[in-house]
Design a protein around this nucleic acid. Sequence first.
DNA 1: GAGCACTGC
Length: 671
Amino acid sequence: MADIVGATFIPALHKPPALLPIAKHRETLLYIIETYPITIVVGQTGSGKSTQIPQFLEQAGWCADGKVIGVTQPRRVAATTVATRVAEEFGCEVGKEVGYSIRFEDVTSADTRIKFLTDGLLIREALVDPLLSRYSVIMVDEAHERSISSDILLGLLKKIRKKRQDLRIIISSATLQAEEFRDFFSEVNEAQEAKVDNKNHGKQATDTSAIVSLEGRTYPIDILYLETPAEDYIERALSTVFEIHTKEAAGDILVFLTGREEIDQAVQEISERSAQLPPGSESILPLPLYAGLSTEQQMYVFDETPMGYRKVIFSTNIAEASVTIDGIVYVVDCGFVKLRAYNPKTGIDTLTATPVSKASAAQRAGRAGRTKTGKCFRLYTEEAYQALPDANVPEIQRSNLAPFVLQLKALGIDNVLRFDFLTPPPAELMIKALELLFSLGALDDYAKLTRPIGMRMAELAVEPMMAKTLLAAPSFGCMDEILTIAAMTSLGGSIWIQHEGEKKKADSTKRKFAADEGDHLTLLNAYQAFVTKGRKEARFCHDNLLNFKSMTRAISIRSQLRRYLERFGLAMDDSSVGGHPDPTKKAEQIRRCLTSGFFAHAARMQPDGTFRNVSGTTVLHAHPSSLMFNRKAEWVIFHEVMETGDKTYIRDITKIEKGWLLEYAPDFYKT
DNA sequence: GAGCACTGC
C-alpha cells in the first residue's frame, strides 16, 4: 500500500516542516501528479500554483496527442488574468498555446494546450463531452471557496475518474480543508481501491491522493484582538483607523464591513472627523468599495495614494478574494459578513450578517502582508475567534438548488439525491428543487428530465422559471420581448445607475421608460430605447442613467439565448411574427407568458399597499426600486424575493390577472 | 417612501 503521507518528500499536513518553494520542487510535483490520480495542492496566494503547475505539466508532456490541461477558476476575471500572465511567461499570445474561455469569450484555438476557464463553464462542457476527454489534467483552483459549481465539478470528476484512469485531477485548497478533499476522493468503498487492497481501514486509504504544501510569498502579519468585545463595530472600526493613522508607520488600511450602508456611513464619518486631526498630520483619504458601485467608482481604490495622504478603504467581502489591492499594510476586520441563505420552507433567500469563519478571518488578515510585514486588527476577542467555525457553510447547503438539479439531470445523473457531493445538501433543499422543477414541467412523475422541455431548460443559461418562460414565449407570440426581458432580469439589478446625489432625477428618468404593467415591461422599454434611439451608445446610457456595461452585456446575453432557441427551432423572425399588433394586447401576452413561468412567485396586494404571497403566510414589500413601490395593483408576479433585515422585498414586479394563475398552473394552485 | 455580500452558465 502506498502510504503517501509518510513518503519522505511530502510534508505533513497543516504544519508542514518544510514548505515547497514551487520551482525547486518541480520534479516532486510532477512525480506525485504522475503517480497519484488526485493531487491536493495547499498553497497561499503567491505560491505560484495557478501559474506554474500548468506550465510544468505542459513541459512534461501532458499535452501530447493534442490533450489539454484545464484549470478552472471560480471567477471570470481570475480566468482571464491568470491566462494572460501564463501566456506572457510561456511567450505566446493569449489564445494560442495558452488561452481562456469564459461566457461570451472563448479565447482559445486549435493550438491551445493550457486552458483557463470558469468552473461553471467546464460543467457545461460535460454536457457535450461527458468524460471531458480532451483534458489530460484538470486543476480545480480555489476549491476551498466551496462555490456550488466547484463542489459539483468535484463530484463529477470523482465519477469521471472511475472511467478514465489516465485523467489527473489537481485540487488547490487552503490548508484547513485539504484533508476533506483527500477523504472525499479516497473512500475505500470505491471499486478501484477494493480490488487493490482489503486491508485499508476507513479513511486511511490514500493510494489515490496526495497532499502537497507550497510556500507562499507573503510576509508575517501581527494579529491583534480586542480585550473586551466591541459594542458597535463601526464605531470601533473608526477609532481603530484613527489610532493606526496617528500611531503606526505609513501604509494603507483596508477595513472589512458588511454592506453598503455601513460603508457609506463610515466613509462619511471619517471625512467629518478628519478635521479633528492635529494640524500638520497626514490626511486620511476614505474610499468605499462594494459591488454596487460603478466600475469607475471602484477603480479609485487602485489609484496611487496621493502625497500627504493615507488611504483607507472600507470594503465588503469583495476585497476578501475577488479584488486585490496593493499597498495594504493594515487590515481591520469587523468579524462579520453578509451571507445569503435559502429557506426551503418559504422559498425565500435571506441576507443576514453572520460571524466570519476562521478561514475567512485568515484570508482577510492575509490582505495585509502582500508587500511587507502587516498588522491585522480584529474587532473581536481571541475567545470569540476561537469560537468561530473553521469554514463557512458551503454554498451548496444554503442555496436554491433548482438550477443545479436541472444541470445534474441533464448530465445523466438521475438520482440526484445519491450524487456524491463533497458535503450533501440538506434533503429539504433537494426536495424543494425537485418540486419546483416538476411544477415547471422539467421533470415527469418519475422525476426524470422531460424531453424536450426539461432538457432545453437545462441548456438555457437562465434560471428555471425564466427558462420555462422563454420556452413558452412562441405560443404567446412574444419571443422577441421575452428574450429581452430574460436578458435584462438576469443582469440582477445592475441596470440603473445614480450619479452622485441625484436620487430624484434617477426616479424621474426611470419614469420615462415606465410601463403601467410593471417592471418587466419597463425593462423592455429601456432596452428597446437603448438599441434603437440610443444606437447602443454610452452617451445614451449616461443621459438616461442606464449602466452602459450592463446594457452591453444584456445584448450579449440576449443573442446567446436567441441562438439556443434557434437551435431548438423556436426562435422566429424578429419583427413580423405572431402576437398582436395592438400594444395593449401584446403586453397582455407578455404578462401571460411571464405568469406561465413565474406562477410560483405570485402575490396579492393588501389594502395597506403591502403584498401577501398566495397562501397568505408571508408579508412582502415591493422593493423601492420597483415601479410597484407606489402603485396600485391586485395580483402580481415577481422575479426575485429576498429578506433583508426585518423586511421581505420583491423585485421586478408585473401585474397579472388572478385567473391566469389557475390557467397556467392548475396543479400548483389546485385547492 | 427607502435599499443586495459575492459569483457563474
